[in-house]
Design a protein around this nucleic acid. Structure first.
Lengths: 302, 302
DNA sequence: ATTTGCCATATCCAAAACATATGGATTTCG
DNA sequence: CGAAATCCATATGTTTTGGATATGGCAAAT
């Protein structure tokens, strides 16, 4: 039995007339009569009762008609689903991000926009460290990851979304913490201070950017502590163990004992927002996500 | 797209290998490769990614695989359903019966047995007068009907199930109502009494059987009232308007003011239990019901 | 560099689907 | 009541399709 048989049978059943059904199907009456007989022979069931003026359905034919329609509808659904998936309108995606990434408003907006635009795609979220996420993208447990520091790994590409300025996070009791909230500090003013930095081996890009900027300002920063997560630097700053440079968006996280100051003068280190994906031909849902991310970053008003 | 394409695709997807899938399907690798390409061309979607060592599914292919399996399962279900219906194991049947028929224990037992034996058949019940039911069978709103009196109508056949003796229903205060409950009366003893009968035009068979039995006993009964339902005769007997002859099974219905007495001697009129169906080729469910009814009647222990 | 393993292409043939011509049975109509 | 009409089934021929066989191309394995 083929779908052709079901299509022919449904037409015959609906017309109660083989000749009219043949016309509707675009073929002649004798082949349709033969196809109906072949179907009945294969099933071993009489589906039609032939009359001098057309045909009528047997009870088995009536039962079969309902199911035949369901099969044809299901087949259409299968085709439509494959096409939607091919267009990226349906499927699944795993989106990873570091603990600090969502502090930038672009990230939650991107995820929300993607879910609204592609309700047929099942999007799952995965928070983790940069190295964890990069590893996950490589092992295909994560599809894309939003990270803060440039990484290099085999088989991956990094798409920069934007770069935001970094700001100084100071213990509230620190001498430099005085003055209005809008005050700025020069990088040189931080010479001699103890720095708490996001550790180099977790993401060398950010670390090196900070070191480079300090050197350009004429000093080598004294690094007191290295932490595995950017967010963790704030805990130590609050504890009075030193100061840190963090992405400006983290200033949204008000913490007891921490004040933020902009940096003035040049060069001001920046913290990028990056999208990591596998190199090569991504699935349609990943392509859609990357496209949406680029669009969102472009239209983001700082 | 045909079911063949789906069967081929599912095999290829499960084997991840066109040559092995071809072996499993009983054909050669080149035609299978061509069929897969034809399917992808028709859908306008790439379902398979060809590799030097086998194939893998695209995201659209994975989506399509799930749906393809569902279509094939649904097609199997359609075939199985048509076959069950053809065997009478699935479908529907409308069973009619007069208000007096279920008093005989065969009738509820038959209905219960049928429902238990064919749970896949939706059985509906329809109570009505004999003429109503006969009309319903003719107009195909009822499939079979259990009635009490022989009928003749175009296009119908009557299958007798059994015949049970009739008994005398007397008002409790009647002179003949004395004596032990097990006492019998001769039909001749009822000469001169007022009879309440189930009206002739509702079912002439029972009426004529009673008249014939009385004549054979040497008298013509005085008919006081004629009623449209056998059950209604008991109401009038209870009211003291006369006596009636009713099927023995109605004695199960204890009514205030009515006592029942067996008849002794010959001939004793009997009340048949009859099954009415359409002449010609009935549906499989009706055939199953008729067969079960005949079997139930045969094995019924009086 | 060669071999292996896999899928794709080319060509041919048998089977299946469909077209055309015609037959048979029942109903409708004059 | 006989002829015509209407419908589905059968017979025969043609076209299309599915599958077999032979072979090619490409990437990975050895």
């Amino acid at each position: 039995m083929e779908l052709r048989h079901l299509r022919y049978f449904v037409a015959v059943a609906e017309e109660s007339h083989i000749t009219r059904a043949a016309e509707r199907l675009g073929l002649q009456q004798p082949p349709l009569s033969q196809q109906m007989k072949a179907l009945e022979r294969e099933l071993g069931v009489q589906l039609l009762r032939r009359r001098p003026r057309g045909v009528e359905l047997t009870a088995a034919g009536r039962s079969f008609l309902a199911d035949a329609r369901a099969v044809l509808a299901q087949a259409e659904h299968a085709v439509a689903g494959a096409r939607r998936t091919a267009r990226g309108e349906q499927g699944q995606i795993c989106i990873g991000f570091t603990s600090s990434a969502p502090f930038h408003p672009l990230v939650p907006r991107l995820i929300r926009t993607f879910r609204e635009t592609f309700p047929g795609v099942a999007a799952t979220l995965e928070e983790g460290g940069t190295l964890e996420l990069v590893d996950g993208v490589q092992r295909e447990t994560v599809d894309v990851a939003v990270v803060r520091t440039p990484v290099e790994a085999d088989g991956l590409v990094v798409h920069p979304l934007l770069a935001e300025p970094m700001v100084v996070a100071l213990p509230r009791a620190h001498g430099l913490a005085g003055g209005a909230a809008g005050a700025s500090l020069s990088l040189k003013a931080l010479a001699g201070e103890t720095f708490i930095l996001y550790r180099r081996r977790s993401g060398p890009g950010l670390y090196d950017a900070i070191i480079g900027a300090c050197r350009a300002a004429g000093f080598s920063p004294a690094v007191g502590q290295e932490v595995p997560r950017i967010v963790s630097t704030l805990n130590l700053v609050a504890a009075g163990l030193g100061l840190s440079l963090v992405p400006q968006s983290l200033a949204r996280m008000q913490m007891d004992g921490v004040v933020y100051r902009r940096l003035k003068g040049r060069p001001t280190p920046t913290a990028p927002l990056l999208l990591v994906a596998r190199r090569g031909d991504p699935s349609a849902t990943v392509r859609q996500f990357l496209s949406l991310a680029r669009k969102a970053a472009k239209s983001f008003a700082p």
